[in-house]
Amino acid sequence: MELFAIIVMKAEEPYVRSLSAQIESELKLLHIVESGLFVHYALFETHASLHIEALIEEKNVPAIRKEVSQCLADALAEHIMVDKEYAILRNLIMKEFKYEGKEDVEAIESYCKQSLHTETVMEEASLLNSGISGRLRRKQVLSDQLVLALEETSRLSLDGFLKFRLQDYTDELREIAEYAIDEFMMDRQYQEFISLLQYFVYIQEAKIPVAHLIHKGGHEFVILNDRLELIDANEFDASFKLEVLEKDINFEDMIVSTLITVSPANIYIHTRDPEMTIIKTIRQIFEDRTTVCSYCRTCDIYLGEAKHQDQLSP
């Protein structure tokens, strides 16, 4: 007796075979050996149909259908999240948020993938606590909607379900897309800002030969000249353009502001934490003017003796 049929439009055989295997794997968890439960599929020119059947007495059909529908819903929910979620997100990005450029769409998608990866990590961590990740919540939403759909009909169009029955699920994906777009815009503004600062540094003539940027840890920095004396930025004439730049961009990082004001030909960055964001930003702005050092005499004096000898990294 056929319990359910899943209709998939315009599907290639490898896709249908994979989906059939996913469903069969999930159904095996029911251990209904006596029912003779099995899955097979048929391909047609316009669609494919997957059939879930069971050799079972009619009186046992209601109980078995309920078990099978829940198991089938879980399998299809996982399938949608693994094989369809990125396509749904891409459609939201392009159709709803009106991003059409290939590079922009791919960049936003990469932020979406980061969010989804974080959710997967959280899901794995939930084995150690009672937290429920967004991924688990979305899967539950999908599974619940699929169960309702399978209660209404034994022949389910997967494409129709994806198009018309996924409002709550799509709303959650829309939030992920919105977050990704915010991150994308912030990153774009940051890169434009960095490019502006790079240009400003490029057109300035060097005012001093060397500056030593001492990173004492955390957000504590000291800037010294080539004689290892404290630099007073007030002794230098700040460019009008820099003042305008700071006002417009609301640039609050006084370290970068001071370095741009004193305009060293070379900057030696003495730090035990070269991967710190502000260090990376300074290197990005001043480019080949910078050298990061974590082991030298100056480092020893101001930062203490290093545990391991590191090399100068240009």
Rank of each mutant, 00 (worst) to 15 (best):
M1E: 08
M1K: 06
L3S: 04
F4D: 13
M9V: 05
A11K: 05
L19C: 09
L19Q: 09
A21Q: 14
E24V: 02
L27P: 04
L29G: 12
E34V: 08
L43I: 13
E45P: 02
S49G: 09
L50R: 00
H51Y: 15
I56W: 03
E57Q: 11
E58C: 04
K66P: 01
V68N: 10
S69V: 06
S69Q: 11
A73N: 05
D74Y: 03
D74K: 10
I80V: 15
D83I: 05
D83F: 02
Y86A: 15
R90C: 12
R90L: 10
R90E: 15
K95V: 10
K95S: 06
E100C: 02
S110H: 09
S110Y: 07
K113I: 15
Q114P: 01
S115N: 02
L116N: 09
E119S: 13
V121L: 15
S126I: 04
L127I: 03
L136G: 13
R137T: 05
K139M: 13
Q145S: 15
Q145D: 14
L148N: 13
E152Y: 00
L156W: 07
S157F: 00
L166N: 07
Q167P: 00
Q167K: 07
D168V: 14
E175V: 07
E178L: 05
Y179Q: 14
D182V: 14
E183F: 00
M186F: 04
M186T: 09
D187W: 08
D187I: 05
D187Q: 15
Q189F: 00
Y190E: 15
E192W: 02
S195L: 10
L197R: 07
I203Q: 06
A206P: 06
L213K: 01
I214N: 04
L224F: 03
N225R: 06
D226F: 00
R227V: 06
I231H: 04
A238D: 04
S239L: 11
K247R: 15
E252H: 02
E252I: 04
V256W: 01
L259E: 00
V262D: 03
Y268I: 07
D273M: 13
P274V: 13
T277Q: 12
I278F: 02
I278C: 05
I278E: 09
K280I: 08
R283I: 05
T298Y: 00
T298S: 07
Y302H: 14
L303F: 08
G304W: 06
G304P: 07
E305H: 14
E305A: 09
A306P: 13
D310W: 01
S313P: 01
